[in-house]
Design a binder for these strands. Structure first.
Lengths: 111, 111
DNA sequence: TATAAAGTTAACTTGTAGGTTAACTTTATA
DNA sequence: TATAAAGTTAACCTACAAGTTAACTTTATA
């Protein structure tokens, strides 16, 4: 079964990925886990701002977090990026279409 | 060279993909090219509404179009989906991280 | 135990995405 | 040649994303 364009999970994942700052966070976390404050400092964002981004990433299950004392550690979540990738990959067979193909299609339609 | 999280082109592509209706359009077009009116009808959207989606997809270079008389034909554009895919694929090596890894990291940090 | 650190939550502002209706242009057809 | 089809453009509305500041909670430390 291939993943549908209207899957709610795909929706939250792609919405999370659509934001540049959140992609920056993902990039950061791909190197190593970090705390909320560290992420805020690297992204040059206030704590409330980073907090919202983290919640968005968390709801999309793109990250996991764990509280240790007063410190929140965040890590990239393995599998979820694969969801977006597999949606995109469905269309790899269509990747051949280009200007020539379209011209061709138009000619056929106009017969 | 790998593609950066803050690339403007990646930005427009992922923003275009973040919308469910636009993903529906892409799915439609993966089957065959279509006219603007056909896409509007399938997505159950008005012409002005579909027009905006198409412009967004076009600016992201996810589609190409060609005018034939008064009719606008639209087709999925080959290569651009690959851009999003390759950004995501950069992080495939990080996909291993999970709860155990995070716990581990936290322990190390607290030593 | 008072103070600081690390987040969270609430209330607010601003910009923009995604839709609408109405008016218009260009091309085809009865 | 008048009318309809296929889009486009403009002006508008509404909801929400992304930031802010201020107030708060919880946990650690001097």
């Amino acid at each position: 079964m291939s993943i549908s364009y209207d899957s709610p999970q795909l929706d939250s994942v792609l919405e999370a990925l659509a934001n540049q700052k959140r992609r920056g966070i993902i990039h950061d976390l791909s190197l190593q886990p970090a705390t909320v404050t560290q992420l805020a400092s690297r992204a040059r964002l206030s704590l409330p701002a980073i907090h919202k981004h983290i919640r968005s990433l968390e709801q999309a299950q793109l990250i996991i977090r764990k509280k240790a004392g007063r410190t929140n550690f965040v890590a990239l979540n393995g599998s979820t990026l694969g969801l977006a990738q597999s949606w995109i990959m469905q269309y790899q067979t269509s990747w051949g279409s280009n200007k020539a193909t379209l011209d061709n299609y138009i000619s056929k339609m106009q017969e």
